[in-house]
Amino acid sequence: MEDIRAYIETGILELYVLGDVTPDEKLQVEEMAKKHPAVKAELDEIGRSLELYARENAVEPSEALRDRVMGSILTNLADDNNFPEKPQHVNHKVVELTARKESNFYKYAFAASLALLVASTIALVNTYSRLKNSNDQLVAMQLQNQHFSNRVNLMDRELTIFRDPSFKLLKLQGTAKTPASVVTLAFSPAKQKVIIDMGNVKLPENDKDHQYQLWALVGGKPVDLGVFDAKTDSTDMKEMKSIALADAFAVTLEPKGGSVNPTMDQMVVLGKF
């Protein structure tokens, strides 16, 4: 197999396709192509490459040159009389010239360079493809690690809240407007913290012009605790505004940024201790 590869890399196949080989070399290439599929495949590939190169670099002849050639063909082929009569034989002294011995060095060097260029291009494309695949895998692994890290941090926060006796868990149930809605929050009067478990929020997803607003009911009066968005892919623990006392909590749907007072007919969940 190494001999076949070495034979291919000599550049003889490129010269064969270009028609720049001796009759013996032509016969040798054809015999090798019959015996070895690798040689036949390489010949086909070189032929396709040269055909593509010729097609992409073809030069359209000018109109003047085309008219001149066609006129010459039609003139000479239409009437044999246009050709000059066969000249009388004149006995000239013939001096035999010594034929210049051609060197195959440059044509083989060119063919070898062409083969090297094709091989280098293929190797470069393959290397780029492998590098891109490796980079895509690295980015995917980084995203996966970041997601895993975020999930671990979230679980740590949840455990901290569940193990802290100062926090009380409260599940706000849906109203007649949205009976299937649920919001779970943790409230610590001692630390004056209110935290919403966004991973367990079940609310219709709000549009870009509206947000949900959390209210604490203190002595029958609503106190603004901030706004949030209901996202189906959210898993975070969202800390709201601080408050020390609350008799109940409610959520309403308000214009983006929140309202000074709750819109009562837009209340979606309510819960009290």
Rank of each mutant, 00 (worst) to 15 (best):
M1H: 09
E2C: 00
I4T: 15
R5P: 10
Y7D: 05
D20R: 15
K34F: 11
V39M: 14
K40M: 08
E45D: 12
L50W: 13
L52T: 01
L52Y: 04
S62G: 15
A64I: 01
R68V: 05
M70T: 11
L74A: 09
N81Y: 14
N82V: 05
N82E: 01
F83A: 15
E85F: 13
Q88L: 10
H89I: 13
V94W: 01
L114Y: 14
A119F: 04
S120V: 06
S120H: 14
S120L: 13
T121N: 11
I122D: 14
S129N: 07
N135A: 06
L138E: 12
H147Y: 08
L159I: 12
L170M: 14
L170S: 08
G174M: 02
A176S: 08
P179K: 08
S188E: 09
Q192I: 01
K193T: 03
V194A: 03
V194T: 11
V201M: 10
E205A: 14
K208S: 15
Q211R: 01
A230P: 09
T235E: 10
D236H: 12
L245D: 15
D247H: 04
A248P: 04
E254I: 12
K256G: 07
G258T: 06
S259K: 09
N261P: 00
V268P: 03
L270Q: 14
G271R: 04
